[in-house]
């Protein structure tokens, strides 16, 4: 059976302010696949993730993104979410005063409404939350706290995967979800991601290190340098990168790339 094509990125160019960040990215993701997007700091990995989620601080200057037959770039961030696209943030945002459970329920019901489903009532919702909580072994007391406020780095990352477990996306993009996690937490988070894997969904793991890929085994590995995918391969490419670094893949002469300004690029 032909796998459903979820995402097609064609010749995507984007900039932040005056700085060119993406310079022609091509990427295809089919249902059932796990892709790893790797690259050195400042190569544009996180920018790509943020653009896919609908961040308007970047300007797309060329190219297109087709998500399940739709022009993704025309959709508002919330429409993308409702269509099943999920971004696990590299830096999850703290929202004082807004209760974590309430937030998640609002999100889930927005997505259900979009799909033409009934709102989940409080009882069913809580049952779902409890079940999914175990997937990431998250402390239940975090549910009643304001979103991410006062959470440790590891708690924030787990909370992201927990949200993913509840919202059940079709395409999940994990942006540096491994950074700031100790090895135990990493294993738990990875196990959670693996259990959410189904033939009809896909995951793009954005990471700087190979470490996470020991636990989430990718079908494809792409290396992004200077805003372009310079090499793609299978999981062995990740191991090679681990051993050899990125230098051998970088274009000559070096130093052509503008140093991105702080805040312009978050990878």
């Amino acid at each position: 059976m032909e796998k459903e094509r979820l995402l097609t990125v064609r010749n995507l160019h984007a900039k932040a302010g005056d700085i060119d960040i993406l310079q022609g990215v091509d990427l295809t993701v089919n249902a059932g696949e796990v892709h790893a997007l790797m690259g050195p700091n400042g190569s544009g990995k996180s920018t790509l993730a943020q653009i896919l989620a609908g961040r308007d601080q970047y300007e797309v200057t060329e190219g297109e993104v087709i998500y399940r037959g739709k022009n993704l770039l025309e959709l508002a961030p919330e429409e993308r979410a409702c269509e099943g696209l999920f971004l696990a943030f590299q830096y999850p945002v703290e929202i004082p005063g807004v209760n974590n459970t309430y937030f998640l329920k609002a999100a889930l019901n927005a997505i259900r409404k979009h799909r033409g489903e009934e709102d989940l009532d409080a009882v069913d919702f809580l049952a779902l939350v409890k079940e999914r909580l175990q997937l990431v072994e998250m402390d239940p007391s975090l549910l009643s706290r304001p979103v991410n406020e006062g959470f440790s780095g590891g708690e924030k990352k787990r909370n992201e995967i927990f949200q993913m477990a509840v919202l059940e996306p079709i395409l999940a993009i994990l942006d540096e979800t491994d950074s700031g996690l100790d090895i135990d937490a990493l294993r738990i988070v990875a196990a959670g991601v693996n259990r959410l894997k189904r033939p009809d969904n896909a995951t793009v793991v954005v990471t700087h290190y190979q470490r996470l890929l020991n636990y989430i085994v990718p079908d494809f590995v792409h290396v992004l340098i200077d805003g372009r995918i310079v090499k793609s391969g299978d999981k062995n490419l990740a191991l090679e990168l681990e051993n050899r670094g990125y230098d051998w893949l970088e274009e000559q002469p070096k130093g052509r790339r503008k140093t991105p300004q702080r805040g312009a690029l978050v990878s």
Partner: peptide, 11 residues
């Protein structure tokens, strides 16, 4: 924060 909420499907 607005973007974070929207990326979770809240308009």
């Amino acid at each position: 924060a607005v973007f974070y909420l929207r990326s979770r499907g809240i308009d």
